[in-house]
Simulated assay, not measured.
Amino acid sequence: MEARIERVWSGGYGGTDSAPASEGTSGGRAPELTEHNAWIIGDDEEVIVIDPGEDAAGVLEIVADREILAVICTHGHATHVAAAVEVAGRDEAPVALHPADRLHWRMAHPDADAEIEMADGGRFDVADVQLEVVHTPGHTPGSVSLYCADLEVVFTGDALLASGPAPHEGEFPDFPRQLTAIGERLLDLPPGTRVLPGHGEESSVAAAMQRFDSWVAAGPSVDLG
């Protein structure tokens, strides 16, 4: 069975919906940062859930009866990890988090630990494809992206949105480091790689390459457009 990617929206529009990721860029609304993308990658039998957000029921509804192999958190902010323990717990799957984001994780889960401490270069297998962990710090110290060469996609969390580097609560915790991670780790991927972010619509590495200099020139502004 071929692996596929599904996007689950939750948050800013008062509900949860899903569609194949290829439909995520078509027309219509432009999600605000309050809306969150959870991603499901797998086939008809098994999946990995990336950034389940706050709506465990909505994510599990889309997963249905497929086995959850792991829940991977691109970073530790509560809006991305609040449902992680509940989603993983359904199938006794492990939760993966970079250890540098343990403090952020604790704000959402003071009594639970992530079972897998991710590191740069780590790998996860699902449905005959592989996800590679790419450490992309700046938004948080432990922010990671997940590159799937087989499907030519990278899940970037809040390291990189279609609009540029993502702030947190209106500010950039470490803008230079975030830009460095984008420039040295993400823009080094093939230009045709689809960028599937933690908020908003998908873009591509090629599009980020074209806009990178303008992000550098703009500095730590939250209106990167």
Rank of each mutant, 00 (worst) to 15 (best):
M1G: 15
E6H: 08
W9P: 00
W9L: 09
G12L: 09
S18V: 07
E23G: 10
R29I: 15
P31I: 11
E35V: 06
N37Y: 06
W39K: 03
W39S: 02
W39L: 04
I40R: 00
G42T: 10
G42M: 05
I48F: 03
I48R: 01
V49T: 06
G53I: 00
G53D: 00
E54K: 12
A57H: 12
V59T: 01
L60Q: 07
I62E: 03
V63S: 01
V63P: 01
R66W: 05
E67C: 09
V71M: 03
I72V: 15
G76D: 04
V81R: 00
V81Q: 01
E92Y: 10
A96I: 04
L97R: 02
W105T: 02
R106F: 12
A108V: 09
A108Y: 05
D120M: 09
G121M: 11
G121P: 07
G122C: 12
G122Q: 08
R123D: 08
Q130C: 14
E132H: 08
V133I: 15
H135P: 02
G138R: 01
H139P: 02
T140K: 02
V144K: 01
Y147H: 13
C148G: 09
C148N: 05
F155W: 02
L160V: 06
S163L: 11
P165Y: 06
P173W: 03
Q178N: 12
A181P: 00
E184D: 15
L187T: 08
D188A: 15
G192N: 12
G192Q: 10
S203G: 15
F212Y: 15
S214D: 15
A218V: 04
P220E: 14
